[in-house]
Write a protein that binds this DNA or RNA. Structure first.
Lengths: 352, 352
DNA sequence: CGACGAATGTAGAACGTTCTCCATATAACG
DNA sequence: CGTTATATGGAGAACGTTCTACATTCGTCG
C-alpha cells in the first residue's frame, strides 16, 4: 500500500497481427502474407499462422487496413429509408455479399444533397472498397470526380453515357409505357400521371424517366403530345392535400399512373375515404410492386422492378470493378406489370 | 518519346494533414490541435490553419483517425430492414446526429446471430465511437463483453440490470396491457394473442415482454391464468398459412392482439379475403402504429411506440456515454393506444 | 562442385492521424 | 534583473496494417 507496486496498468490487450506473429513464432510480414494469401508461403507456415489466428480469435483492424490497403467494406447510400423499395435493394446486396468476405455499411442521405455528399466523402475517407449509390441526387460530373477515387455503381440513375462509373437500372421509360399500354388495353383513354415534384429534378432520375415513358406511350396511343402530369410535392405536409384536390377535381381523369406505390397507396386510401371507387371511378397503377401493394386490402396493380435483383446485379458489378475492370458497364432490367384490382376488378391475371 | 521523361508519376495527391501544415507554414501537430480544438492555440494560428483547411478542402481520413483516436462515427445495427418500424428509429438517430459532427453507419443483420456478431465486431474494428443496437439477438453477457470495448446502447432489449451498457425501451409489457384493457373496455372477453415464434426467444426481446404484459392483463381481467398465445413462425413461408388456419378455426376468438403491425396487417388482409369481418367478427389491435396501419384502407388500431423518439433518446444516451458517462442508464417510454376501426367501428377516439 | 533460380521468410518503410512530452517565448513578480 | 509561471508551438512516437525489397535456403543443372 505504501509502496506503489503498480502492475503494468491493465492495458486492454487487443490481439493484433503482432500478437499472432509472436504466438506463431514468425514475422509480422508472414502473418500478413497468410491473411492475404499472397505468394511465397509454405504449407507449414500457413498452418502455424492459421492455428494462432484461431486460438487467439484474431480479427484484423479494419481501421488499420483501410489506412494501408483494402478495407473489405462496401458502402451503400440510400436516399430514403422509408420507401419500402429501398430495403429490397439492400436485401439483394446482402445476399450477394453474404458468402464473400465483404460487408456492407449503409448511409442514409434523406434526399439531401449536402448530406449525400458528406456521406460519400466519409465512405471514401474510410477507404471503403467501393460504393453503391441508390438513386443519388448528385449530378453526373460530381459522381465522376468521386468515381476516380473509388469504384462506384449507381442504381436508379439513368446516365448510360457515364464512363467513370457503372449504372444499374430497370428500364423506367419502358415501365411507364407498360403501365399506359395496360390502361389503354382496358379501354381507358382519359389518363394522367401523378409524378413527384423534385426540388431539382434531373433527367437521370427514375421519376423523370417514367415521365418520359408516359409521354411517349400516350403519344403513341394517339392521346396528344403533352398529356397531363400532376406533381406531388416531395417531403411536404401538403402531399395529402394535393392528392385530395386531385381526387375531387371535376375533370378528374378516368385512370392514373402513379410514380410510386408509396403515393399510389395513399391515393387509394384517400379515394376510399372520399367515396371514389377504384377501379370503377378511377383506375390506378403504381410502381415498385411493394409488398403493401400485394395485400388483399390494397390490391394495387403495379409495375414490378425487382429491387432485390437490382441490388444483386449492382453488387456483382461493383465487385468486378473492385477487382480490376475499368470499362464502364450499364445494365438494364426489364420491368413488368402485376395486374390487380385497382386496374380492373378481379384483375389478377399476371400476378405471380 | 524516345527518352523516358517520366514526371513524378501522377500521384493522386490526397490532401493530408501534412499538406495543410505545409500550406499554413506550421507543424502537423498544430493542425491537429486546431482540429481537435485542444488547449494552447493562439487565435492567429487557428486562423491560418482554418484558412488552409478551407482552401485545400481538407478532410481528415476517417481510417487514420480510427487507428489513433476517435472516428466520429456511430454504428447502428438493425435486425431487419423490412419492418417499417426500424426506419423510424433511424430517422430519429439521424435527427439528433445531424447537427453534430457524428455520422451514422448502418448494418443489417437479418436476424442472424452470426451476422450480427460479425457486424458488431466490424464496427469495433473500425474504431467507431459507439453503437446503437436495435433489438439485438445476442445474449446480455455477450453484449457486455462487447460493451467493454465500445459504448453501447441497446434499443428494444429489456435488460434493466445490465451495467455495461444502456437500454432504451418502450414499456412493452405496459403496451400489451393497454391493448388488452382496450379490448376489455369494448366488451370483448374472448381474447388471444398472436405472437412471434422466435428461434431462440430470449426474455429480453420485445415480443416476450409483450407476451408477459398480455398474460398479466388477462389475468387481472379475470380471464384465466394462461390465456392462449399463438405463434407465427419467423422467416418461414408458412406464415400466411398459420394465419389462415387461425382465421378459420371454429373456436376463433372474438378479439386478437398481434405482436406487430407487420403481421396484423397481413391478418386483416387475409380476414377480408376469407370473409371474416373486422371488427364485427374479429377485433384486432396491432403494435408499432406503422404508417400503413394509419391508412384509411387498413385502419388498424395499434399500440404506438414512437420509433423516432426511441432513436433520438438512444442517440443522446450514446453521445453522453461517449463523452464520459460510465454509470448505465435504462430509459423507458410509455406507449399509447391509437384506436381505429379494427378495434371498434368508427373508433378514432384517441387518434392524434 | 560452383552457379543460378526458385521458393520461402523477414525487415522496415509507409499510410494519416492523435497526443504526450518538450522547447521556447513571453509575462509576472519580488 | 533574475526567477518562476504561463502560454504557445513542435518533435516524434504510437496505432495496426500492407507491401516492397531484400536475405536466406534449397534443389538443379552444367
Amino acid at each position: 500500500m505504501s509502496i506503489e507496486e503498480k502492475q503494468k496498468p491493465q492495458r486492454n490487450d487487443r490481439v493484433t497481427i503482432r500478437t499472432v506473429a509472436t504466438h506463431a513464432g514468425v514475422s509480422v510480414a508472414a502473418v500478413s502474407k497468410v491473411m492475404r494469401n499472397a505468394y511465397g508461403v509454405s504449407d507449414a507456415l500457413r498452418a502455424r499462422v492459421t492455428d494462432a489466428i484461431e486460438t487467439l480469435a484474431y480479427r484484423p483492424s479494419r481501421a488499420a487496413r483501410g489506412l494501408r490497403g483494402r478495407s473489405f467494406t462496401i458502402g451503400v447510400l440510400l436516399i430514403d429509408i422509408r420507401n419500402p423499395f429501398l430495403p429490397e435493394v439492400i436485401a439483394g446486396v446482402n445476399e450477394v455479399l453474404g458468402p464473400s468476405h465483404y460487408q456492407a455499411m449503409i448511409g442514409v442521405s434523406d434526399a439531401r444533397v449536402q448530406l449525400e455528399t458528406s456521406l460519400i466523402e466519409s465512405m471514401i475517407d474510410y477507404k471503403m472498397d467501393g460504393l453503391i449509390l441508390v438513386a443519388p441526387r448528385l449530378p453526373s460530373e460530381i459522381l465522376a470526380t468521386f468515381a476516380v477515387q473509388i469504384p462506384i455503381v449507381a442504381v436508379g440513375y439513368h446516365d448510360a453515357s457515364a464512363t467513370a462509373f457503372d449504372t444499374v437500372n430497370a428500364e423506367d421509360q419502358r415501365g411507364a409505357e407498360i403501365a399506359v399500354e395496360a390502361l389503354l388495353a382496358c379501354g381507358y383513354r382519359d389518363i394522367e400521371m401523378l409524378s413527384l415534384g423534385e426540388r431539382q429534378g434531373h433527367a437521370v432520375s427514375v421519376v423523370r424517366q417514367r415521365e418520359i415513358g408516359f409521354r411517349r406511350a400516350m403519344q403513341r396511343g394517339g392521346l396528344g403530345s403533352s398529356p397531363t402530369i400532376s406533381k406531388i410535392p416531395i417531403a411536404s405536409p401538403k402531399r395529402e392535400e394535393v392528392m385530395r384536390k386531385f381526387l375531387s377535381r371535376k375533370d378528374r381523369p378516368r385512370a392514373v399512373f402513379c410514380w410510386s406505390d408509396l403515393d399510389a397507396i395513399t391515393l387509394l386510401s384517400l379515394a376510399m375515404e372520399m367515396g371514389v371507387r377504384v377501379p370503377e371511378d378511377l383506375a390506378v397503377i403504381g410502381y415498385d410492386n411493394s409488398s403493401t401493394a400485394a395485400l388483399g386490402l390494397v390490391n394495387l396493380a403495379s409495375i414490378d422492378q425487382s429491387g432485390r435483383e437490382l441490388g444483386q446485379v449492382a453488387t456483382r458489378a461493383l465487385i468486378s470493378r473492385i477487382e480490376g475492370r475499368t470499362a464502364s458497364e450499364h445494365i438494364f432490367q426489364i420491368p413488368s406489370l402485376v395486374s390487380r384490382n385497382s386496374l380492373t376488378r378481379f384483375g389478377n391475371s399476371t400476378d405471380r
